[in-house]
């Protein structure tokens, strides 16, 4: 019994330590600057004011950053589906020469972290005059080896009879991919979608490389623009902005914990 009390206490303490940054962020986001810079420590703000949040939206273009995040994530996700679902379907449910070779390439591609390809891709985009565009932010990610791999695993578990039946029913292969195959692997598709959106919403590296226009900043980049401009004096609104930037991921996670964990855990297969 005492063992159990110690265990519970230790776990709660650990969880509290994990949450400290979040709690402090929330606390600061409601405080005015006088309170922040005062020397007394108080977790609860003197009064609950949304001023910092309003400032965050008016002083910097936070809405723009969020919109960019949505555009980039959605663009990447749509293309990743368009490319990887048909490929994974063909790799499992069709017989053609070179199938093994292509799957071998997919597995090899899984081992390559994105950073490794950054310099040549930057060069190519610069040559094509595409730096500082949405295209530059989306194109490098359109073909996800991880997506192909994940969908391939899911499709391989389906009965081939189903696809033969669909062929006899008069569906084209393209129709089979989108009307039969994809709806049958919805859990895998959701997991992949969550993984992809979280990864690209949170990514700073590529945005830092191919954009210099603040109008193209995705949320993490936007936060840095904000911080660097205010040079540390406007902490309250900055914290309000961070709350807003992480909110979509946190809310999504809390609402669909199981799917989120599945998606992010599956992402570990990626190199």
């Amino acid at each position: 019994m005492t063992g159990r009390i110690i265990l519970v206490t230790a776990l709660i303490l650990g969880a509290f330590l994990m949450l400290v940054p979040f709690l402090w962020m929330l606390s600061l986001s409601f405080k005015d600057s006088a309170e922040i810079f005062s020397s007394t420590l108080d977790f609860f703000p003197a009064r609950l004011s949304l001023d910092n949040y309003i400032t965050a939206f008016t002083k910097v273009d936070l809405g723009r950053f969020l919109l960019n995040g949505v555009i980039v994530c959605a663009g990447i996700l749509v293309f990743q589906f368009l490319f990887s679902v048909p490929c994974a379907y063909a790799l499992t449910q069709r017989r053609f020469r070179g199938r093994q070779v292509i799957f071998g390439l997919v597995l090899a591609g899984l081992l390559v972290p994105f950073h490794v390809t950054a310099i040549p891709l930057f060069l190519a985009l610069a040559k094509l005059n595409l730096l500082d565009t949405y295209t530059a932010l989306i194109v490098p990610f359109v073909s996800s080896m991880f997506g192909i791999f994940l969908f391939r695993q899911a499709f391989a578990a389906l009965s081939p009879d189903l696809f033969d039946a669909a062929r006899l029913d008069g569906l084209s292969e393209t129709a089979i991919v989108w009307r039969i195959a994809l709806p049958l692997v919805l859990p895998a598709a959701t997991a992949f979608g969550i993984f992809s959106v979280v990864a690209h919403w949170n990514d700073l590296f590529w945005n830092l490389i191919v954009t210099s226009d603040p109008n193209l900043a995705t949320p993490p980049r936007g936060i840095l623009y904000f911080r660097d401009r205010e040079s540390g004096s406007d902490i309250g609104p900055l914290m309000a902005a961070t709350v807003i930037v992480i909110a979509p991921m946190i809310v999504g996670f809390l609402m669909a914990q199981r799917r989120f964990i599945q998606g992010l855990a599956a992402g570990g297969l990626k190199g």
């Binding site: 009965s159 009879d161 189903l162 033969d164 039946a165 669909a166 006899l168 039969i180 049958l184």
Partner: peptide, 10 residues
């Protein structure tokens, strides 16, 4: 028309 052992219903 074909009827499959697994029925292959969607």
């Amino acid at each position: 028309a074909m009827v499959f052992q697994s029925y292959a219903l969607y």
